[in-house]
Amino acid sequence: MEDKEILEKFANPDSRNVAFNQLVRKYQQKIYWHIRKMVIDHDDADDLTQEVFIKVWKNLENFRQDAQLYTWLYRIATNECLTFLSSKRKKFFLPINDVAAELTEKIDSSPNIDGDEIQLKLQKALLKLPDKQRLVFNMKYYDELKYEEMSEILGTSVGALKASYHHAVKKIEEFIKRD
């Protein structure tokens, strides 16, 4: 079902639930994986994914169709991730490195992670990046979004995103070479 059709059906109280169910089915995986790569842990990703869709449910009627629906969803998911990681630091008075260490430990111990040595190293290298740079890297490298789409989601200029991605790749390569 096209986004436009979903939005039209959602506007009608009789078909609102059906339309929203379609929306969740269409975008759940993209949103979940976007979140999961940021928070690493499945249970956290599950909670945040549900929170994102509840926010979408509450605000979809006010969604202005100037933007694409999926960039709007990505933006909500991105904000949820950043808020989650930030509150994690504040809650436990943790510096950035300690949160990265905690997430790194999850990579080693979580039952829902399966990768060879180099893939695990890549994920650990990613955790060395600042949250926003990690977001940029994930969106470009894994989700293969265009810089223009990322710019709309993150509210950052295309030039800054290109520079951020370029530096992220360099840092990751350096980390893997060194380790």
């Binding site: 929203f20 759940q28 994986w33 999961r36 790569k37 599950d46 549900q50 509840i54 449910w57 893939q119």
Partner: peptide, 24 residues
């Protein structure tokens, strides 16, 4: 090679829409 090393519990994406709809 690009690879997603993260996994989800079995049938997670089959159950998720129902859980979300319940909360809505």
């Amino acid at each position: 090679p690009k690879r997603n090393i993260y996994e989800v519990p079995e049938k997670y994406f089959d159950r998720l829409p129902a859980q979300i709809m319940e909360r809505t």
